[in-house]
Nucleic acid binder design. Structure first.
Length: 951
RNA sequence: GCUGAAGUGGUGGAAUUGGUAGACACGUUGGACUUAAAAUCCAAUGUCCAUUAGGACGUACGGGUUCAAGUCCCGUCUUCAGUACCA
């Protein structure tokens, strides 16, 4: 019997599918465990070997947990709304739903052939109306909520309305827009309906607001920052303008503090938590208002101007010797004196050309211009010169800084450069070379009422005094901005929203889903409206409660529907709850109370760190909202999170002579010739970096290019150059799992992906190495069966057999629990090598070994397990118990070191005393030879570990 | 700039609380089997010196602590990722 992996794998994949082996139950005596992979987008290119890395890891863990007696939920589905399908639709006219369906079919086939233990019965697709019905429903919940800062949670908007009706808004402490005028209960009750709706929008957790976007008229679309290169679109090079658009926003900023605090309760890597912490960007300090001193030279009537700044160091307020505004600050043009006008304008023009990134990265170049204006110090009343400088950015804080050169290095550098005074307000600090930026061990001096105080005390006092003056207050600032939620796209969730007199109205949940309408083209309209502007049947009839033809719009009972769609992150912000419910029971709810209660949250979440500030932050936000409103019980969706690294490609190059395009030199022959490296498909390169020239010349795609090529060989072969790059079609280094599964089998692929290195690390793929794990599987097979029969028998296991087995149990269990999958693969290899050497045939050893290997290589494990006489799947067999007694050694091979360097080893009994060890070692001939007559100064003996002789 | 991670043979990587550096593989070399190839099996394989015995060096670099450092401490460099001066 040979190891016929293709047949074996197909057989067990069919078995698992027909037997529903991995279907999870919502009722079980076993403890629950929920393992989830980050939602895949089914791209048209299909999977390459890098994609399954995380899925294999999570699958090993899920299978391990089943062996350990857990009721495991391990679902999979598709984040199937998205841009690539829409792009393809624009180019070909093919409906994105069709493209998506095709891509999912490919994706599913590829996933199935790798042997994952997914519960496919619970699959979800964000683009299915039954699914996005609930995405729309959550949107409505956001709209119907406001954030009460007093109770520190979201509440029904009705509670806000009743407050308005009885006491107005002056006592309301809410997360809201900052331009809301105060009103009394009487005023509220006299507002028109539109006025009331307008006010409420400023409090709702999702609201309409004017947002600046990067608009590209030629493409008729909005572009992300990284789609713009040097001010023009990356695709096509068209001009891009800043444009204001009315869009839905999500008031995520209301949750800034809870999103930050929640990080302390989850088991994520520090790196990931740091990214979110930085993104939320909390800083505690004070806001200070500086009054601008009206310019005497100006003949125009001066209005009084104020500059608001935020500072984390209010204690240093007496160290202010100038202020710096961002060049784009709106006050700049108003306060600049005529004398300085020319210089200021020239500077503004210069900085406008620099990208924000550029301005921020460059800390060496110091530039700025004096505006000629002065502000008044709130306490000393001294005039403070106001400068502009591009190290201050308009979009951060208030776009203005109170500069304290003695305490801030950037302010210090600026002051030195422009010869501005640097008053020292720290007792005993040396500021002759650099600023003293530390908050610790400071004693404030030269600061009037703050003298002698430390940072904490002085800050508190300043805030108190500022409040007395009405020129400031204590303030906590967050960098986190509200998230724009509208997309001018077709392939996304439609909003359940229609407009009456320009005011958004929610459609009652009884009428959801509002299904994406058909359009004849997936492009924006000529008027610049989103693609849904092309739909003919896209109006809401409030009598029929149905979507009807646009022609019926009369603004009385039939109204226009929202034309934007939701962004990609909408559907992925709650999908983990949907999996909790059996597909059969999903009709009336997004997930039933029982299901939510049973599964709670995701116990293990595996995915890439690129989602750190998108998906992982937004879904935490939505979960908190759902909890506040009583729909779920958990505050955090993902208890433990592991980031997998990326598998990189190993590109191959041939070297073309620059003067003769048909001449290629082998890698070792380049020397100082002028050659051009050209990517070639990695499939034509073997493990020794040798090129298959015939294969290359007959390649369907590029063979023609090399038809007349002459390859200059070294030692009879053409050696290619190699380099590690991201796996990508354009670099011809993509390796497809289909061919790996066909050539080596899914079990080899699974083992090899793990064997490559630590899960979280970035590492290059090299197909050549897979023969190692493939040979291992063949050896494993041979341990159980020979040419025509099963070798396994009831032989009593030997001591060595037991030692090998239990050492393996211990290591594999520790490895899986530490997500150190690469080292378990080595451990399996060692175990099989040892058992082969020991000629072990004992079922008592070989059966538990299969359970250990089954999470990693499930197909071969199932096949051999059934050969051992089992009729049930191995998937729920109990994980073998580790018994330490088998590892107890009677002797130890001591390393004998001289001055810390190991010279030889000496086998001694484990129970030998320290003195006896020393005596035996000192008497040994090799020790005497090593010492060469010298007397050692000291002999260190650590029983069970090492002997070190010093001297 | 800041924050985080990392730097070990030709390659991927291993090394528990400081205790035999290079496990396990790939590749390479030599051998067996074969008409031959593939497959399989066996052996060698960090670098340098040495016929051998053996020795010297060696975990990015420079210091330090220790009987003992890949591991701990200080400094430097490089790479990758995140972030963008939050005042």
């Amino acid at each position: 019997m040979t190891y016929n992996f293709n047949d074996i794998e197909k057989k067990w994949q069919n078995y698992w599918a027909t037997q529903q082996t991995f279907k999870a139950s919502n009722q079980s005596d076993k403890p629950k465990y929920y393992v989830l992979d980050m939602f895949p987008y089914p791209s048209g290119a299909g999977l390459h070997v890098g994609h399954p890395l995380g899925y294999i890891a999570s699958d090993i863990y899920a299978r391990y947990k089943r062996h350990k007696g857990f009721n495991v939920l391990h679902p999979q589905g598709y984040d199937s709304f998205g841009l690539p399908a829409e792009q393809y639709a624009i180019q070909t006219g093919q409906h994105p739903a069709v493209t998506t369906e095709t891509n999912i079919t490919t994706y599913r086939r590829q996933l199935d052939q790798i042997g994952f233990s997914f519960d496919w019965s619970r699959e979800v697709r964000t683009s299915n109306p039954e699914y996005y019905k609930w995405t729309q429903w959550i949107f409505i919940q956001l709209f119907e909520s406001w954030y009460n800062n007093d109770t520190n949670k979201a509440e029904d908007i009705k509670t806000l309305i009743s407050k308005f009706e009885t006491e107005g808004n002056t006592n309301v402490n809410a997360a809201c827009d900052d331009d809301i005028a105060p009103f009394t209960a009487a005023e509220w009750n006299n507002f028109s309906s539109e006025e009331q709706q307008d006010v409420l929008l400023k409090y709702r957790l999702t609201y309409l607001a004017e947002t600046e976007v990067n608009w590209c008229p030629a493409l008729g679309t909005v572009l992300a920052n990284d789609e713009i290169v040097n001010g023009v679109s990356e695709r096509g090079g068209h001009p891009v303008v800043r444009k204001k658009m009315t869009q839905w926003s999500m008031r995520i900023s209301a949750y800034a503090e809870r999103l930050l605090q929640g990080l302390d309760t989850v088991d994520w890597t520090d790196a990931l938590k740091d990214i979110q912490k930085n993104w939320i960007g909390k800083s505690v300090g004070a806001s200070v208002t500086f009054n601008v001193i009206p310019a005497v030279s100006s003949s125009a009537v001066e209005t009084s101007h104020k500059i608001d700044v935020f500072t984390t160091r209010p204690d240093t307020i007496f160290g202010v010797s100038f202020m710096t505004l961002a060049p784009e600050h709106e006050l700049v043009s108003k306060i600049t004196t005529p004398e300085q006008k020319e210089a200021v304008e020239a500077y503004i023009e210069k900085t406008a050309k620099r990208s924000e990134r550029d301005r921020m990265a460059d800390v060496k170049t110091i530039s700025g211009v004096f505006t000629g204006a002065y502000a008044e110090h709130p306490f000393s009343k001294a005039p403070i010169p106001i400068w502009i400088g591009d190290y201050v950015l308009a979009s951060y804080g208030t776009g203005a800084v109170m500069a304290v050169p003695c305490g801030d290095q950037r302010d210090y550098d600026f002051a030195k450069h422009f010869d501005i005074a640097i008053p020292n307000i720290f007792e005993g600090a040396d500021i002759s070379e650099e600023a003293y930026a530390s908050k610790d061990h400071v004693k404030i001096a030269n600061s009037d009422f703050l003298n002698g105080m430390n940072y904490k005390k002085a800050s508190k006092r300043v805030i108190f005094e500022l409040e007395k003056l009405g020129q400031g207050e204590g303030k906590t600032n967050y960098r986190l901005r509200d998230a724009v939620f509208s997309r001018q796209r077709y392939w996304g969730e439609p909003f359940p929203v229609y407009y009456v007199n320009g005011m958004p109205q929610m459609i009652d949940q009884a009428h959801l889903p509002i299904v994406l309408p058909e359009v004849e083209k997936y492009l924006p309209t000529e008027e610049g409206e989103p693609p849904l502007g092309r739909a003919d049947v896209w109006a809401w009839d409030t009598n029929q409660c149905a979507v009807v033809s646009n022609e019926l719009i009369d603004h009385k009972t039939v109204f226009p529907l929202e034309l934007n769609t939701m962004p990609g992150w909408a559907g992925s912000s709650w999908y983990f709850f949907r999996y909790m419910e059996d597909a059969a029971n999903r009709d009336g709810v997004f997930a039933s109370e029982d299901a939510l209660k049973y599964w709670e949250n995701v116990d293990l979440y595996i995915g890439g760190s690129e989602h750190a500030t998108g998906h992982l932050l937004y879904s935490r936000f939505w979960v908190k909202l759902l909890k506040d409103r009583g729909f779920v019980n958990v505050e955090e969706p993902f208890k433990k999170l592991i980031n997998q690294g990326m598998i990189l490609g190993t590109s191959a190059f041939v070297y073309r002579d620059e003067s003769n395009p048909n001449l290629y030199y082998s890698q070792g022959l380049i020397e100082d010739k002028n050659v051009l490296p050209i990517h070639v498909k990695v499939q034509y390169v073997n493990a020794s970096d040798e090129l298959d020239i015939e294969g290359l010349k007959t390649d369907g795609e590029f063979g023609e290019d090399f038809k007349d090529a002459e390859f200059i060989l070294e030692d009879g072969v053409y050696k290619v150059g190699r380099d590690v790059e991201k796996m990508s079609k354009s670099k011809y280094n993509v390796v497809n799992p289909d061919s790996i599964c066909a050539d080596y089998g899914a079990d080899s692929l699974r083992l090899y992906e793990m064997f490559l290195g630590p899960l979280e690390q970035y590492k290059p793929w090299n197909t050549a190495g897979i023969t190692g794990v493939h040979n291992f599987l063949k050896k494993l097979w041979k341990l159980y069966v020979n040419d025509n029969s099963l070798k396994v028998n009831d032989a009593e296991p030997t001591k060595d057999n037991l030692k090998t087995l239990h050492k393996t149990i211990k290591k594999v269990q520790e490895d899986i629990e530490n997500f150190s999958f690469n080292t378990s693969v080595s451990t399996f290899m060692i175990a099989v090598n040892e058992l082969t050497q020991q000629k072990c045939t004992s079922k008592a050893i070989l059966e538990p070994l299969l359970v250990l290997i089954s999470p990693y290589a499930p197909h071969i494990a199932e096949e051999l397990y059934s050969k051992l006489g089992h009729t049930e799947s191995i998937s729920t067999a109990a994980f073998p118990e580790f018994d330490a007694s088998h590892l107890v050694e009677s002797s130890k091979k001591y390393p004998i070191s001289f001055n810390g360097k190991m010279r030889f080893t000496l086998e001694l009994p484990m129970d030998m005393s320290k003195d006896a060890i020393e005596k035996t070692v000192m008497a040994h001939e090799k020790t005497i030879a090593q010492l060469d007559g010298r007397t050692p100064k000291k002999v260190i003996v650590v029983p069970g570990k090492i002997v070190n002789i010093v001297g």
